[in-house]
Amino acid sequence: MSHLDEEQLVEAYYAPDEQSRMHMRGCPECRAAFERVQEHLDALRDYPVPERGPGYGGEVWKRLLPQLPPVRKPRAWLRLWLMAPAFATLLAMAFVAGMLTQRKAQLVGTPASTRERVLLIAMNRHLERSQIILSEIANGSTAVLDFPREQERARDLLDDNRLLRQAALRDGDAADASLLDELERVLLDVANSPAEMPSRDLEALQNRIDNEGLVFKVRVRSSDVRFKGQQL
């Protein structure tokens, strides 16, 4: 038998088979190579993980509970939705500011950080609001879901979504543009569906949101945007 290659040595470390063992018994070269692999991989065992206290499970539960369906907190959502016109104005300002700063920057070299900050705030608000509507739909049933209200919200979000998508395209941010495009298609579906949605249609919409992992993608991006905003 020829010498064991690196892949076989690694495999022998995790799941030693009789053939490798036999070979190494009679081959000092492979045995030495294996001992080196073993030494290296053993050294990687100590991967420090931050400690979590004994009450950690309870803390996770507290954070999780409000997100579990079918818990609904319309009043909390309502406050956010009452601010929708303010967000829309902010977004429009960001868009106009973007146009202006882009032109000015070419002339006098004005930094675009203000525009970026405004856009990040607008993007974060938009994603947070989108996350709410997506979660409500993904977790709701025809019995408990106030679908006409969700449609109204979806219509409110569509204009902002288009503006943000155009801004992302203009800035060459293909990932954001793609996410917003995906989101827009779902929002359009929600906005244009019949107000009395049959349960099988709702299920299809929920599956679509679920299969595309849209809530998760929006949440991840929202968290990234928030983090980036804090860094500016």
């Binding site: 993980v49 979590r52 950690y56 499970g57 309870g58 539960w61 999780l64």
Partner: peptide, 11 residues
Amino acid sequence: LVERHSHAVFR
């Protein structure tokens, strides 16, 4: 289940 598995899932 959450309280039982949170530490391991976090790790």
